[in-house]
Design a protein around this nucleic acid. Structure first.
Length: 714
DNA sequence: AGCACGCCGACT
DNA sequence: GTCGGCGTGCTC
């Protein structure tokens, strides 16, 4: 009897393909194993998700599995169902998600190699060839090349068609080989038992909290918790819980934003857990990542610490999943395969009967709402510490740094105290313009003005990184272009240098390389910088030395963004900056803003998350935004707008026909209507429940060809 | 994703 | 009249 395998491939379609399992492989074929299969002209790595004795609908001629690559499945059945649910939830491809869960060397593919035949060599001499054909053949004269290389090198349109014609005429020889990466035997790292530090003190509230969650770990069934409180308190609870889980012989997955995965963190974990901790994050080299992955798979790590992608760590005996800094948007991977590791952690913990702990000082409104409503919110907030805050109305000010602010800063500098300044705008200015004719230099590929970066005398597109030297004369009317608008961190840095020429002023933004960033932060932490100016990058830091003065400039910039979460983002960034205030009655924050009355700024200034939450929730309720609805944003991207418009409208019509319960906004141009030369059209769908959206979209995702990006907000 | 098939504009 | 552009559909 024939055995059939359902195989998932890493393609943008979430569809299984059926293959025949050859007689000789029958006892090795298992769900969760990698296979090599022929797929149209190539060989691809796929994953068996099921085996069955009956074939599918007759009529499709089936191919055979070429090779089974694993003796032991790389994926357990629970991992398969978890990843499947995740891909369903975010409308992303299951196969791509599975592929992303493995070290890259686990994926084998055929590579097409092309070489010249004798007939081909002869053809170069006499037969009349087209210009393109001659170009290809003479290029292959020296030696054979891979198809990919040829494509990149020759830049000939319709290359594959030309090549297949040449092959048919016997001028070119095509060979498809499987690219194999040599598998080195991994030396097993045997851990030396370091001196462990398993003793940590907790205050009463934290102790009670830890005990309560511990009970759930003991229960060995899924239970979620949301820890609301400051970082230090959360951390001590986490370690208590990790200890508990390890006592139960259950493993731990600890997720945190990429920015938090630091050397200091590694040392912290090693000190407390010895060699039983593994780290997974995107800054590891491919090889290091693979080694860590293998260690985890072999069961040699009890705690896996890592960023977003560590969600896919190969462990099944999980007792505890922690997602710290829950509010951090870097948990959401927007590129394909897109997924949100926060939701992923929920699905994984649920599937394995593990305890799930989210933690944040300033949670997302939706997450906080749900935790409260469903009774899994745990507050670690102690006595609210009133912080000294001054709000300066910038509408009456001329300069970026107002007089009053300058006075505040100089007081601190006199006492040799350091100052942190936040401004959410990169570069020197958002744009420059000609005072004569008002023309503004714009990106040629994106629908946006070029930002002025004075440091490297250039105009830079913040969407595609296109950059040109800054113009001295207006390209339109020839007059001198000197005006800038919407000042950024570079301008503030410059202004501060002018006002305080004796002080050491530095700025921190993503324009700096990672090394430079580390360097600036190190300098600041050692006390070698007096004033540090930074963007969101500064606000997201975890190990920053407290300052006695924190300045927050124009937080309302975030409020103007076209995002229904603008208020919570503003609240968060202001609160976050204020959390860098040192202890004591002397520490002070100054907020300089054009919207001093806005509730997100006002309530952040008074460190009142609960009131902010209430007010914001009210808006969300009135306008039917999450958590009171579920929202999906679909972004169509393509070369020509006409086609996009047609597709998006057809798409929208089909949604409308499919379900009456979906509210459709759009299609319309996306806030940035063109990026990298590709037009962007967006449609927003709203429904009371996610399942309604799922039903409406299920069949549509496959069709309507153009590239679509789907973002899920809940 | 890659690739083949099929229908409308600028040219040997 | 063809060549070739990309819009559409399929791959077990």
């Amino acid at each position: 009897m024939t055995l059939y395998a359902e195989v998932i491939l890493s393609l943008p379609v979430s569809q299984a393909f059926t293959y025949i399992v050859p007689e000789s492989f029958i006892d090795r074929a298992q769900a969760g194993s990698r296979v090599l299969v022929p797929f149209s002209q190539r060989m691809l790595t796929g994953f068996i998700i099921g085996l069955r004795k009956r074939g599918p609908t007759p009529g499709i001629p089936l191919k055979e599995i070429a090779e089974i690559l694993d003796d032991e499945p790389v994926f357990t059945s629970s991992f398969l169902s978890f990843s499947r649910r995740l891909s369903d939830y975010f409308y992303s491809s299951w196969g791509e998600l599975l592929q992303a869960s493995l070290p890259p060397s686990f994926i084998l593919k055929s590579q097409t190699r092309l070489s010249l035949t004798e007939k081909g060599t002869a053809a170069l001499e006499d037969i009349t060839l087209s210009e393109k054909e001659r170009k290809i053949l003479s290029f292959l004269q020296k030696r054979g090349y891979s198809l990919l290389f040829l494509k990149r090198r020759l830049q000939v349109k319709g290359l594959s068609a030309l090549l297949s014609r040449l092959e048919k005429n016997g001028l070119v020889d095509t060979r498809r080989d499987i690219k194999r990466t040599k598998k080195k035997r991994t030396p097993l790292v045997t851990g030396s038992q370091a001196q462990l530090e398993l003793d940590f003190s907790l205050d009463t509230l934290s102790r009670q909290t830890a005990d309560r969650i511990s009970t759930s770990i003991q229960g060995r069934s899924f239970a979620p918790f949301f820890l609301h409180g400051p970082a230090d308190k959360r951390e001590s609870v986490y370690f208590q819980l990790i200890k508990k889980s390890l006592e139960m012989r259950k493993k731990v997955l600890f997720l945190l934003p990429e920015i938090g995965v630091t050397q200091a963190l590694r040392e912290k974990f090693e000190k407390r857990l010895g060699e039983r901790a593994a780290m997974l994050h995107s800054r590891l080299s491919e090889r290091k990542r693979e080694l860590e992955w293998l260690r985890i798979k072999e069961g040699e790590a009890d705690v896996v610490v890592g960023s977003r992608s560590a969600l896919f760590a190969p462990l099944d005996d999980l007792g505890l999943v922690i997602v710290d800094e829950e509010q951090d948007e870097s948990y959401y991977q927007q590129e394909s395969p897109s997924y949100d590791a926060r939701k992923g952690a929920w699905l994984r913990a649920k599937g394995l009967g593990a305890t799930l702990v989210y933690g944040s000082a300033f949670p997302r409104v939706s997450a906080f709402f749900r935790a409260r409503k469903r009774g899994y919110l745990v507050s670690l907030e102690g006595e609210k510490e009133r912080k000294k805050v001054e709000i300066i109305d910038s509408r009456r000010e001329r300069r970026g740094i107002s007089r009053r602010l300058a006075v505040r800063i100089s007081e601190r500098l006199k006492n040799k105290e350091s100052v942190l300044v936040f401004l959410n705008r990169r570069g020197y200015a958002s744009y420059i313009y000609c005072p004569e004719c008002n023309s503004v230099p714009r990106c040629t590929r994106c629908d946006i003005a070029l930002a002025f970066h004075k440091r490297d005398k250039s105009l830079v597109c913040h969407y595609c990184d296109y950059s040109i030297p800054v113009a001295v004369y207006c390209p339109d009317c020839g007059s001198r272009m000197t005006r800038s608008r919407a000042l950024g961190v570079e301008a503030v840095e410059e202004e501060l240098r002018e006002i305080f020429p004796q002080s050491r002023v530095k700025s921190l933004a993503t324009d700096l390389s990672r090394d430079e960033q580390e360097n600036v932060l190190g300098c600041y932490n050692r006390g070698n910088i007096d004033i540090l100016v930074g963007t969101q990058l500064l606000a997201r830091q975890t190990d920053l030395r407290p300052a006695s003065l924190v300045v927050i400039l124009f937080p309302e910039i975030i409020l103007t963004l076209p995002d229904y979460r603008a208020s919570e983002r503003t609240f968060r960034v202001v609160s976050r900056m204020m959390s860098f205030l040192g202890p004591g009655p002397d520490a002070e924050a100054v907020i300089q803003t054009a919207l001093p009355g806005h509730f997100s700024i006002r309530l952040a200034a008074s460190s009142d998350y609960r009131s902010f939450f209430r007010e914001e929730l009210n808006f969300r309720r009135l306008l039917n935004y999450p958590p009171f609805s579920r929202l999906v944003e679909i972004l169509f991207q393509g070369e020509n707008l006409r086609n996009l418009a047609r597709q998006s409208r057809r798409f929208m019509e089909r949604v409308k026909r499919g379900s009456a319960d979906v509210e459709i906004l759009g299609p319309g141009l996306a806030p940035v209507a063109k990026v990298r030369g590709r037009a962007r059209v967006q449609v927003i769908l709203k429904a009371s429940r996610k399942e309604i959206l799922d039903n409406a979209l299920r069949d549509l995702m496959r069709t309507a060809g153009t590239k679509k990006t789907v973002l899920v907000y809940d």
